[in-house]
Amino acid sequence: MRVVVCVKVVPDTTEPKRLGDQHVLVRSGVQGAVNPMDDYALEVALKWKDAQPDLDVVVLTMGPEDTRAIIKKCLAKGADRAVLVSDTALAGTDAIGTARVLAAAIRKIGDVDAVLCGVRSSDGESAVVGPAVAELLDMPQLTTCKEADLDGSARTVTATREADGALEVARAGLPALLTVTKASFEPRLANFKGIQAANKKEILGWTTADLGITPPARQVLVTAAGEPPQRPASQVLTGSAADVAQKLAQYLTEQKLV
């Protein structure tokens, strides 16, 4: 069986972010990291692989060439191989365009039983790439999953997912797409053996031509960007607890917040 994990390399959140030409995030020269939610998605796949060692876990990413070093970390944790779709024409692709490229790559990988995505990326913050990929591949989706079990013989996946203030246990037939949120477990770290093994694993490089597609046209234009309007300077309250509490209560009433 084969599982594809979609992993996005995002700017490390401790680094300041910059917007460049056409208000597109400047990614080169910025320290990258695996999108935190995608780390959980990878962990779900690796847990499946722990139970079923012949499971083929493929990491798929679209991004610049210099994301290779970060994708290698996913291989060190236990993924079998990786595909990097990289093409200068893809810079600044929007969410649905990204989904079209990922879906084309998943078709090319072939015989995929499940696709795992993060719920959302920390830089795109759209949470739409996963469902869009599912639609393009005509798969059912289970979103905001906290844990999931793969049943190869029944050809189903059963997940515990967050659904509007409730926890839902839901099942879908394979092939299916799952988006994963922060789970109750922590993603594993790579050990020395894994890091050694990763050196021998393959990171395939594909372009849009390899996928037989033209780079998706941009369907969303960013027309402006800027710093948020300054919040009025903080009103600082100091003094005895009773004093501070009294001023807070007064503020809340005056501002009609209570």
Binding site: A95, P131, A134, E135
Partner: peptide
């Protein structure tokens, strides 16, 4: 959120989230 991506694919348009 679950519908947006799927609908945009079908309508062949983008999503602003």
């Amino acid at each position: 959120k679950d519908v947006a991506g799927r609908l945009a694919v079908r309508l062949d348009c983008g999503v602003i989230a």
